[in-house]
Design a protein around this nucleic acid. Sequence first.
DNA 1: AATCTCTTCAACCGCCTCCGG
DNA 2: TCCGGAGGCGGTTGAAGAGAT
Length: 249
Amino acid sequence: MEGSSLRVRKGAWTEEEDLLLKKCIEKYGEGKWHQVPARAGLNRCRKSCRLRWLNYLKPNIKRGHFAADEVDLIIRLHNLLGNRWSLIAGRLPGRTANDVKNYWNTHLLKKNIDTSSKTSNPKSHKLKPNTKVIKPRPQILSKRSFLVNLDEYNNNNNNNNNDRVETSNNVVLADCSDNHDGYCFLDHDEMMWWENMMMNEKEVDGHQLQCSANDIDQSVLDQIMNEDNYGNTMDELFLDEELWNVFNP
DNA sequence: AATCTCTTCAACCGCCTCCGG
DNA sequence: TCCGGAGGCGGTTGAAGAGAT
C-alpha cells in the first residue's frame, strides 16, 4: 500500500515542508504528483503532497468561518448532490472539498440530525428521506473518449462543428478543455438551474429562495434544513437520456 | 489548577476511474 | 483486452485546542 513505507513521513506538515512544496509547485506547476516529493525534496508520498497543496497551500483558499450564503448553498447543494464534496466545493470559490466535508460533518450534519431525529445514528446518516440525489454519472468526458463519441455523434447528425453541438432537445456540448482537460455537456435546463442556484434571490421551482449573506438567520437555516425545495428540479438536472446513450453505448 | 469531555479539522486510508503501454 | 500507475474522491481517524467540571 502506498504510504506504508517506513521512510515516508506522516502527520502534520512543518513550515519547512510547506515552503519546499510551495516552491516546487511554483517552479514546476501543479500535477505530476508522483514527481513532486523528489522534486521538492520531501519525504512524503504523492497523495500527502497533493492534499496539502489542495487543502492548505494553494493560493486563494478561503479560511475561517463559512458565510451564511455559503452555508445556505452547501445545504442546498447537498440536498441535490449528496456527499459529493468536490462538486459542492466547486461551487464555493476558495473552499476545498475537505473544508466543506468537515463543515458539514461538524455543523450541519449534527444540526440536521437534531432536527430530523433525536435517535438517528450520525454514522449511518446520509440524506434526508425522500431526498433525490444526482446519480454519479460522469458529466466530464475524457478528451479521447469525447472526441471519438463526438465524431460518431456528428456523423449521425451531419454536423462537423466540434466545439458546439446543439440537439433538438436543447442539449449543448461545450468545449470545456480548460476544465480537467476534457469536455462537459450540459442541457439547457441544467445550465439555467445552475444560473439560478448561483443567484442570491431567485425563484426556483416555485419557491422564492432567500439567501442573502446579510439576512439569513437561524430560522431560515432551520427552514432550509427541514424542507425539500428541490424535488421537482432534480429531474431537470439529469442529462438527456438519448444523448447519454449515444456517448455510452 | 488539574482533569475530563467535547469539538474541530488536518491528514490518512482505501477504493474507484482513467489512461497509456 | 489486460494490467499497472497515477489522479482523484469520500469516509474516517486522531491530535490539538476549547470548554466544562
